[in-house]
C-alpha cells in the first residue's frame, strides 16, 4: 500500500477529475481547505474519499447545519473529514434552497453521523434521505419549528418590557414571514 502523504493538490485534483463540475469552489480558511460542492454528489465524494486507499478519510470529525438567510441557497450542511493515517483534515459545505431541503444521508458510511443529522433536522429542518431514524433529538417531539433558523429570536419576540438592543440581544433582523415563504 502506498502510504505516502498526499498533498492537498493531489486530493483536489483527483476530486476534480472524478467529479468535475460538482466542485463549485475551493478556498483555504485558516488551516482548513474548504470545498463547496453540489449536494447531489456529496455522498459520492465522501464515499470516494473514504474508500480510496491513497487518502483514507475514514474519520468524521463533525457535521452541522448552516443557515445563510441572505444567500440564494440559504440552507446548508458542513462536514469535516479527517484522514487519521495522513493527518489531513478537509471541510465540505453544500447548500440548497428551502423548497428542496433534503440531502443524502451519510449514515451508510459513518455510524457517527446518525445523531448529527438528527441534530441538523431538529434545529434547521433539513431532511436526510436514507436516514434510519430521522426525528428530533434534543428538542421535544411536538415542537413545531426549527429553532436555529435565523428568523427565530432567542427570546420571546413579543415582549415589550425590555429594550436590550445595546446588550447584544437585538433581534435577528430577518423577516420571518418572508423567510418562511421561501422567497428571496
Amino acid at each position: 500500500m502506498n502510504m505516502e502523504k498526499p498533498t492537498l493538490e493531489q486530493i483536489s485534483n483527483s476530486l476534480k477529475e472524478k467529479f468535475g463540475d460538482s466542485i463549485l469552489s475551493q478556498t483555504q480558511e485558516y488551516d482548513f481547505p474548504v470545498l463547496v460542492i453540489k449536494k447531489e454528489s456529496l455522498f459520492q465524494i465522501v464515499r470516494f474519499l473514504y474508500d480510496d486507499e491513497r487518502f483514507q478519510f475514514r474519520y468524521l470529525t463533525t457535521f452541522c447545519g448552516l443557515h445563510y438567510p441572505d444567500s440564494s441557497q440559504p440552507f446548508g450542511i458542513m462536514v469535516q473529514l479527517h484522514s487519521l493515517v495522513h493527518n489531513i483534515r478537509i471541510r465540505f459545505k453544500s447548500f440548497t434552497t428551502l423548497k428542496d431541503l433534503e440531502f443524502d444521508s451519510l449514515t451508510p458510511i459513518f455510524s457517527a453521523v446518525n445523531w448529527m443529522e438528527r441534530e441538523a433536522f431538529d434545529f434547521y429542518g433539513i431532511r436526510f434521505k436514507g436516514h434510519p431514524n430521522l426525528k428530533r433529538i434534543l428538542n421535544v417531539e411536538d415542537m413545531d419549528y426549527h429553532p436555529m433558523r435565523k428568523e427565530y429570536p432567542v427570546e420571546d419576540a413579543t415582549r415589550v418590557d425590555k429594550d436590550d438592543t445595546m446588550f447584544g440581544r437585538k433581534s435577528s433582523g430577518y423577516d420571518r414571514e418572508k423567510l418562511m415563504s421561501g422567497k428571496q
Binding site: F32, T62, Q80, F167
Partner: peptide, 26 residues
C-alpha cells in the same frame, strides 16, 4: 464589554483534547 471590537470575517475550526475527547469549536 459592549462587543464593539471588529473581528475578521471568516470561519475557524479549532480543536483541543478535552477530558473525554476531541472538543472542537466551529
Amino acid at each position: 464589554v459592549m462587543g464593539e471590537t471588529d473581528v475578521p470575517k471568516g470561519e475557524v475550526y479549532h480543536c483541543v483534547e478535552g477530558g473525554n475527547g476531541e472538543l472542537g469549536f466551529y
